[in-house]
Design a protein around this nucleic acid. Structure first.
Lengths: 124, 124
DNA sequence: CAGTATCCATTTTGATACTG
DNA sequence: CAGTATCAAAATGGATACTG
């Protein structure tokens, strides 16, 4: 369903763009970094991602071991998503892009505040 | 020729992705940051960008005032491209992505070494 | 060489319908 | 709710021809 993920060159930037060079992947990571864990949470973000796109992004991120699923304590019986330790290493990337946007794009407002995931799961 | 550039939300990350969320834009910035200034220089990068894509990206970056043209001293009579001061502020973004790629994607090699632009223009 | 223009293939996206 | 499946539309990309 998703692509084999081959890289165009040995450039680490080009290779990273092969993974994240699209409009949605890093936004899903952002939501995860902010503590969102359920499908509907991602759907509610202001950018309004489509279900099929969200689904394929989550699958690809799982294949890359940047995201994993776990049993949600909020909604028993359902699975939820979270960043792996490897996925967490993307936060500085998000931060760099968000910092740039905040400083250079009119009308943007800070909103990248990682939430403690355990706390969120325990106290919705 | 290029899009009106509207943002999906007030999120600085989402807005940044509206500008840079594609496979080529940041690679052009990379080349500029490394001191490349002529059309053919960009064409020679290992990722092999097509002329029409390079052309449209340069135009868009100029519209965003991240890139400007100047009279090349290397090839008199021809124009060349360089980052504006605003464009230079993207270097930390490149760096964050490249750092991540280098640390997490097998087979990548460091290659993001900004070159002094004036020196390059004077001593090819 | 430095682009622009064009044609066409592929990819991505968006909307929506549908199933457990 | 959480996805999967479809399908059409739009964006993007690649190859190449063409002009100054």
């Amino acid at each position: 369903m998703n692509k084999p993920l081959q890289h165009r060159s040995i450039c680490p930037l080009a290779s990273a763009l092969d993974l994240f060079g699209d409009k949605w992947t890093l936004l899903v990571i952002r939501d995860l970094a902010c503590g969102k864990s359920q499908f509907k949470d991602f759907m509610q973000s202001p950018e309004k991602i489509a279900t099929n796109i969200l689904s394929s992004r989550l699958a690809r991120l799982q294949a890359l071991e940047l995201v994993e699923t776990f049993a949600s304590t909020l909604q028993p019986g359902r699975q939820a998503y979270r960043l792996t330790a490897k996925g967490e290493t993307l936060v500085p990337v998000l931060q760099a892009l968000a910092d740039w946007g905040l400083a250079n794009i009119d009308g943007t407002r800070a909103m990248l505040r990682p939430v403690d995931r355990d706390k969120k799961e325990q106290k919705p």
